[in-house]
């Protein structure tokens, strides 16, 4: 492949663009290794003594030793990180499995109600989380409950303790459920455009050889749409990992996710910049890693989503 020669002004522009795109992230990364004194004191630039003290403060509840500068572990970041990880991974997995099956049915079968389902899926994509806040809060707390007097409810209360009816609010499953529901329309939409490209003759020949619909799906179609699955997985994970509003309405003390922790610490009067930047960096690292390793899939997913809409 032949590369064109470009003039220097063009490269200057490129450098400026990269600086603008990545600058704030690098700045946060650098600041997360500074003491608050250095951040406020004005030692700009990269001349400072890096310290991992901020990360020690943030992760104090999972460290195997006690950091010297801390008397008391106030920020339970480790626990929130584990919550975020459980919620994001489980909801990504569920969304993918359920979404692929639905997308396959919509593309490959003609059945009663298909158009309604397809149109509903497309429309609910635009529902913002803020709109779901009120109903989801009400339902998860009051209606999606198991009565404690029933057999199952009683068993849960006996095993895990607590009072009142067993409700979805405050559990990991409650948050996972709404994330799966929120991401399904998008995942179905994106995967449809990938499944359409799988040649029908391939499926038919498998069917002639005696494979049932489920065998065709799992053995022929799934392996062929791997790039689409990767893109869908990344987008779902991103939303589940980054979401704040619904998680803050549905979680309790033990199921807090990282974004909630960060927002709660931001609104305190005195912001400890170093620590908060360290927590922000820890939240940002998984998506950054994804982006660096799978940028091609992300771009395919984005263009498939918008251009083939």
């Amino acid at each position: 492949m032949q590369y064109q020669r470009q003039n220097p002004a063009f490269f200057a522009l490129l450098v400026a663009l990269i600086f603008m795109a990545v600058g704030p992230i690098v700045l946060m990364f650098a600041n997360s290794f500074k003491l608050d004194v250095d951040i406020i004191g004005g030692t700009t630039g990269l001349l400072f003594l890096p310290t991992i003290q901020n990360y020690e403060t943030a992760l104090c509840d999972v460290l195997w030793y006690e950091p010297e500068h801390l008397d008391f572990c106030a920020l339970k970041f480790g626990g929130a990180f584990v919550n975020s990880l459980i919620i994001a991974l489980v909801s990504t997995l569920l969304t993918l499995v359920i979404g692929t099956m639905a997308a396959y049915a919509l593309v490959r079968f003609r059945f009663f109600g298909r158009d309604t389902v397809s149109l509903t899926t497309l429309t609910v994509r635009m529902v913002p989380p803020a709109v779901l806040l009120v109903p989801v809060f009400g339902l998860w707390n009051n209606e999606f409950c198991i009565d404690k007097a029933t057999y199952v409810g009683g068993w849960i209360r006996d095993t895990f303790g607590g009072r009142g009816d067993v409700c979805l609010a405050g559990t990991h499953s409650g948050i996972i459920l709404i994330y799966v529901a929120m991401n399904l329309p998008f995942v179905i939409w994106i995967l449809q455009s990938f499944i359409v490209q799988v040649p029908r003759s391939l499926e038919e020949s498998a069917r002639v050889d005696g494979a049932g619909p489920f065998q065709v799906f799992f053995k022929i179609v799934l392996p062929l749409i791997k790039p689409g699955l990767a893109a869908a997985a990344i987008f779902t994970f991103r939303i589940a990992w980054n979401e704040y509003l619904l998680a803050s309405a549905l979680s309790d003390r033990n199921t807090k996710t990282v974004p909630i922790l960060i927002v709660n610490n931001m609104s305190e009067f005195n912001v400890e910049w170093g620590v908060i930047m360290a927590t922000g960096m820890l939240l940002a690292i998984p998506p950054i890693i994804f982006t660096l390793f799978a940028s091609r899939q992300i771009i395919t997913g984005m263009t498939a989503g918008a251009v083939k809409g």
Binding site: L17, I18, A21, V22, P24, I25, L27, M28, N31, R238, W241, N242, Y244, P259, I262, V263, M266, W273, I276, M277, G280, M281, L283, A284, P287, I288, F290, T291, L292, S295, I298, I299
Partner: peptide, 20 residues
């Protein structure tokens, strides 16, 4: 790749960076 980084990072973190 570098350009899509800002989109992938949590909005909470983006807000935090800019607030600083």
């Amino acid at each position: 790749t570098l350009f899509i980084l800002p989109m992938m990072i949590a909005p909470v973190v983006v807000g935090l960076m800019w607030r600083y």
